Amino acid sequence: MPYTVTATSLPEVLILEPRVFGDERGFFLESFNRRDFQAATSLEVDFVQDNHCQSSQGVLRGLHYQIQHPQGKLVRVVEGEVFDVAVDLRRSSPRFGQWSGVRLSAQNHRQLWVPPGFAHGFLVLSPRAQFLYKTTDYWFPEHERSLLWNDSALGIDWPMQAPPKLAAKDAQAAPLAQAATFD
Rank of each mutant, 00 (worst) to 15 (best):
F32Q: 02
E44C: 10
F131V: 13
H109R: 14
V45D: 03
A106M: 09
Q111I: 02
H109S: 07
S31H: 15
D23H: 06
K73N: 00
V82S: 03
Q130R: 12
L89T: 01
G72N: 02
I67C: 05
V102C: 01
E79K: 11
R128H: 10
V102Q: 11
R34A: 14
L29M: 14
E81R: 12
G121S: 00
P70A: 03
H52Q: 12
D84H: 03
Q38A: 15
E17A: 15
G72R: 00
A129W: 06
E30R: 11
D88K: 02
Q98I: 04
V59I: 11
H52R: 09
R76S: 13
V48H: 03
R95L: 15
D84E: 05
E24D: 15
L125G: 02
L63E: 11
Q38D: 11
H64A: 06
Q68E: 15
L123E: 04
R128D: 05
D23K: 00
E81F: 09
F28Y: 14
P94V: 03
R34M: 05
L123G: 08
F32R: 05
R103L: 10
G121N: 03
V87M: 01
D23V: 06
V102R: 07
N108R: 06
G62D: 08
Q68G: 11
S31R: 15
P116R: 09
G72H: 01
Q66W: 03
S55G: 04
E17W: 10
T41Y: 03
Y65F: 13
N51P: 03
A40S: 08
V102M: 07
F27S: 13
G22A: 14
S105Y: 09
S55Q: 02
F21V: 15
G62T: 03
V77K: 09
L104K: 01
V85Y: 10
S100D: 08
S56F: 12
D50H: 08
G97C: 01
Q38G: 12
D84V: 00
R110E: 05
S56W: 11
Q98M: 11
H109Y: 09
E17Q: 15
P116I: 00
G101A: 11
Q38H: 14
Y133E: 09
S105A: 01
S92P: 13
R128W: 03
D36N: 12
P116E: 10
P116H: 06
E44Q: 12
R76D: 06
